[in-house]
Design a binder for these strands. Structure first.
Length: 549
RNA sequence: GCGCCCGUAGUUCAAUGGAUAGAACAUAUGGCUUCGGACCAUAAAGUUGGGGGUUCGACUCCCUCCGGGCGCACCA
């Protein structure tokens, strides 16, 4: 990667300058190489001399010039990576890539028979991404959609980065919520059979989908259960229906999980009991008022919390901890949890316990996304059935737009969705702009099917718009590295859009089919390369790359 | 009341402590005899919620106030 190369070169220069006693000896501080906002400042810029200026109490400008002077001798300079390197105003060192370098990189990428880039960030390690994880008590809502999009795309990026990735869905089909669901379905069932006043349980599920499930039971099995409820049967039926619904919704967004992990397995396999035993042995839990308390205050957290109630039922923290221990034991080196902000308070407890038990909690990365709310809408409640389902929005704007809608925003933003606006504006969604660029390339390619493209003269790619496009293509690996660092998948949306913009500029300025045969060949190679990078970006985002629109 | 998150153009959002805060949509104007006009070009639009502080440099870090979201159960 060019960034890393520049960093290395600068470090080398400084060491050399120190050896020659042109600079005093010091520990090299962190510094940055980034893309300047303005074109005139070059393709990359480095702030090292500003930082050193402060440390050495010397003019940054002067230090910068010293480094640049030395860089002139370096081998990167000699192989003509840069057209120009200079120091500007406050003391930034600016690097301008040479045309020769861009051309040769384009040639390398365009003629490779393999994948465009091979990332070895994950080094074959195991990664797990847990997301959605909704209990089967109703259809998925908008918040789940946000998780589904982020989790799935993150998993795709990690897989490209060289991890072996497992996409996991954790759920619980035991407990109060499910009993409530079962009884709600039964109530609707009885009502459908004529008992108009058969009451919904207190705090029962009021959503219309409950009636649909009951209707199915009536159609299939008639009044078989009118006298007496078969709880197990109703529960199982409701669960199956709802999971079918959930999986279908996820599939409409291009999301498929590898593993559905049921919380009850943790109990069946004795993992929860074992955890309780360990916690007691290590004096991390104690009895009080008939309940078992977790001594979080001794683990750097504020308040102790109950993990086993006086009724001897566990609270959700307990299996959650057991589950995360299992994740580590299953050999995952990178564990990503995607949770809504309602979990923001809880997960540090889980991490604290992992640490106290001697597990490497740094393997667990938690991404908290803020809630999706509706503009002018009522509060969304699953129990009351007053929420916008993910299906509704997918129906309105389609899977591609839905995914982009959730992916283009950093997970920390609060999304206030205006459903009408989203619908009205969906035709103008940026996702179509990216897809259009792809389709347009395909269209050009359809007209030139007989071209052979094993080789081409890369020196012919010298128009500014061609070189800008090449530069943008070379940025792709940087985006992947950045996402691996901070899991900000939205970067990829912005990248794909700007790549499409660079292609539009090229399309405007450079005719592909015209002029000489050699130029056509070179430009065809460039647009095929562009198409591959667009398609790859879209694939990672889980969005279709259509050949025609 | 306490804790976490958020507040950036009319709107939706970007901006690993860096240079004149950027895009899209909406608005205004112009561009098809030409590889796809779902496109392109130009313009207007900002006291980055307010006020302090740290720094060579703050949308970014710290303090405080205002506004919004989410938590604060022997619910999950």
């Amino acid at each position: 990667m060019i960034k890393t190369l520049i960093k290395k070169t600068i470090k080398g220069s400084i060491k050399k300058l120190q050896k020659e006693e042109k600079l005093p000896v010091f520990d090299l501080p962190e510094f940055k190489v980034e893309h300047p906002k303005e074109e005139k400042f070059g393709d990359y810029s480095c702030n090292i001399s500003l930082i050193l200026g402060n440390i050495l109490k010397k003019s940054p400008q002067e230090i910068g010039e010293q480094i640049v002077e030395d860089l002139k001798e370096s081998k990167e300079r000699k192989v003509k990576l840069f057209r120009k390197v200079g120091v500007v105003k406050p003391g930034f060192i600016n690097f301008y890539l040479s045309d020769e370098f861009l051309q040769s990189e384009a040639e390398k990428l365009a003629t490779t028979q393999n994948d465009l880039w091979e990332f070895n960030i994950g080094k074959g390690k195991k990664a797990q991404v847990e997301f959605v994880s909704a209990n089967p008590t109703g259809p998925l809502h908008l918040g789940h959609g946000r998780q589904a999009a982020i989790g799935d795309s993150l998993a795709r990026v990690l897989a490209l980065s060289g991890y072996k990735v497992t996409k996991e869905y954790y759920f619980n089909d035991e407990g109060q919520q499910m009993r409530n669901l079962t009884e709600s379905v039964y109530a609707r069932y009885r009502q459908l059979l004529g008992d108009k006043d058969f009451p919904l349980p207190e705090r029962g599920y009021e959503g219309e989908y409950i009636r649909d499930i009951a209707k199915k039971i009536v159609e299939k099995e008639g009044d078989k259960f009118q006298k007496k409820i078969d709880k197990e049967h109703f529960k199982k039926y409701a669960e199956e229906c709802l999971f079918a619904l959930i999986k279908k919704t996820l599939k409409n967004m291009g999301v498929i999980h590898d593993i559905f992990y049921n919380e009850s397995d943790l109990y069946k396999e004795g993992k929860v009991d074992a955890l309780v035993k360990t916690l007691k042995e290590k004096c991390l839990a104690y009895n009080k008022d008939g309940a078992l308390w977790l001594k979080l205050s001794k683990m750097g957290r504020k308040d102790d919390k109950v993990i086993v109630k006086a009724s001897s039922d566990p609270t959700y923290r307990l299996p959650d901890i057991a589950y995360h221990i299992e994740k580590i034991k299953r050999g995952f080196d990178l564990i990503i949890d995607i949770f809504g902000s309602d979990h923001a308070e809880e997960y540090p407890d889980v991490l604290a316990v992992l640490k106290a038990l001697g597990y490497d909690e740094s393997k667990v990365k938690v991404i908290i996304h803020q809630f999706v709310t509706l503009k002018g809408g009522k509060k969304m409640s699953k129990r009351k059935g007053t929420f916008v389902t993910l299906d509704q929005i997918i129906d309105e704007v389609g899977g591609d737009v839905t995914r982009f809608l959730f992916l283009e925003k950093a997970s920390g933003t609060h999304i206030e969705l205006d459903l009408n606006l989203a619908k009205d504006k969906s035709e103008k969604n940026p996702v179509y702009y990216i897809q259009y660029a792809h389709a347009r390339i395909c269209s050009i390619l359809r007209k030139t099917e007989d071209c052979s493209l094993d080789t081409f003269d890369e020196k012919l790619l010298k128009h500014k718009s061609e070189l800008v496009l090449v530069k943008k293509i070379l940025e792709f690996p940087e985006i992947i590295y950045d996402i691996n660092k901070d899991f900000g998948i939205h970067r990829l949306c912005y990248y794909a859009y700007s790549l499409a913009t660079c292609f539009s500029g090229f399309y405007r300025d450079c005719k592909v089919i015209s002029g000489g045969k050699d130029l056509t060949q070179a430009r065809l190679s460039l647009i095929i390369l562009t198409k591959k990078v667009l398609a790859l970006s879209l694939k990672l985002l889980g969005i279709n790359a259509p050949e025609k629109m």
